[in-house]
Design a binder for these strands. Sequence first.
RNA 1: GCGGGCGUAGCUCAGUGGUAGAGCGCCACCUUGCCAAGGUGGAUGUCGUGAGUUCGAAUCUCAUCGCCCGCUCCA
Length: 528
Amino acid sequence: MANKDVTDPARMEKIVSLCKRRGFIFQAGELYGGLNGCWDYGPLGAELKRNLKDFWWRKTVQERDDVLGMDGSILTHQDVLKASGHVDSFNDPMSECPLTKARLRADQVPAAGPGTEVTFLGAKDEESGKTTDKSFTVLIPEGKQEPERSAEKFAIQFYRELLGKGSKPVLDPAARESRPGPREGALYNPENGVMLSEPRSFDLMLSTKLGALALDNDPKAIAYLRPETAQSIFCQYKNILDSNRVKLPFGIAQVGKSFRNEINPRNFTFRSREFEQMEIEYFCHPDDGLRLTDEWLEARLAFYEEIGIPREKLHILDIPDGERAFYSQKTYDIEYEFPFGIQELEGVAYRTDYDLGVHQKGAGKPLEYFDEETKTKFLPHVVEPSAGCDRTVLALICEAFDEETLTDDKGKDDVRTVMRFKPSMAPIKVGIFPMLKKNEEQVAIAKDIQKSLQKWMTVFYDDGGALGRRYRRQDEVGTPYCITVDFDTLGENGEELKNTVTVRDRDSMEQERMKIDALLPWLLERVR
RNA sequence: GCGGGCGUAGCUCAGUGGUAGAGCGCCACCUUGCCAAGGUGGAUGUCGUGAGUUCGAAUCUCAUCGCCCGCUCCA
């Protein structure tokens, strides 16, 4: 549940602004006015996102012996999504009430009882003289006194809305029709009897046509951009099982793009039309499903802790009966306190054998598992931890963003913007500076250090402007350490300081002197 | 999709019918011995886009795209 009390739009605006200013995230197609619900990651955002995905893959696939990875096609056979139920449920025809703007599923609108149907063909505003020929129809139930009078009230309300605030719509008595209703095929709002708009289907999946000649709108040429990565896992489950000598329980993991034609993209990258998921489908014996769902929840919470999202900022929602998808026996939502409210990062859902069941039926091919020990055949159940990658990147950014007020020697306040990323997530691990750009020896040593470190981690060399300014620039993008080559490094202040540099810590702003040779192991221990 | 607000330099914004601005940032040079603050010079805008009204539009009108808020939706 979104708690309105915790929203902080001003903070969010600063975050969005910093993302653009420093090259984390830009709006897609900005040059041409922007493309709604689509975003591009700039240099720093791309590093951050890659760090997250790589870490997830390492923890989920490489460091476990019961999870295998795959990378499925984005273009999806339409039959896959017909079997999964996406084609139908993503195409609900919806009708709208022109008066209340309520949107109703056309197939669920109850049939209206008998009455008088009145249609108005337009109205004129007494004040401005503006007219409209938009028609408005309402069904007044049988038994109501003076049905035309009741209908007029609705009509005036409708036309007032249409003609604008303060308008006084007048109905032309000639421009109306009355007849017994309801009419065959027409839908009426059960709340007020107003005739609903023609059902329109809201296509929530993105589709394309395969084949160079997508002729005649051949419906067989339609392919969908996958609305979730899960389906390719279910469809390849058997191949992976057969080719990898695995036994239940085991999981298949995937990181990749999915697409949904969101009606209303919102909240920066949080709800986008193109987004990346990090999903696991964990196949198991039916007896183990509920227990494994709880275990995965714990594993996932530990993951968030590791990437720097504290447990107390996460909220776990145990979705109650009746609110879960019909096939799910247990669903947890893991939510994070974004500045725009508490919103979902990940769902951990016990989906039973629903998915394999529908594909077994849809494809007409057996997907059962034969258990050697018990000599039984059954359809595996599945636990699905499904995380939003872009959402998690956004959470990392929101969590990292900090404005620290510093007071200098003269008692003057100064605000330091710091992205407090966990070093393992930080886009740049180390900033490397010569104290003075003009000093050739310092520059040469700094560049040597850059060369030796960049095989192992992302580094950033900077010799522009005052040193303090360079530190602050790195603070703003979350670089955990900065190395400065100074006169001590050159040996000007004694042999014991020669070949040492300072390492400045982002969070404490404190500095430590160490030998150049010691840098690599010291850093590797801290930034990975 | 509906209602409201908004769109001017990289960022934050001023400019309500008459020559496109400020602060910060950015670039160059100078200065600078460790936390954004000195000096000098410089670049940057079809005023979101398109049409209309007008002698003249950043400013008024309409459309369109995008952003924010509230609904709606979220298998």
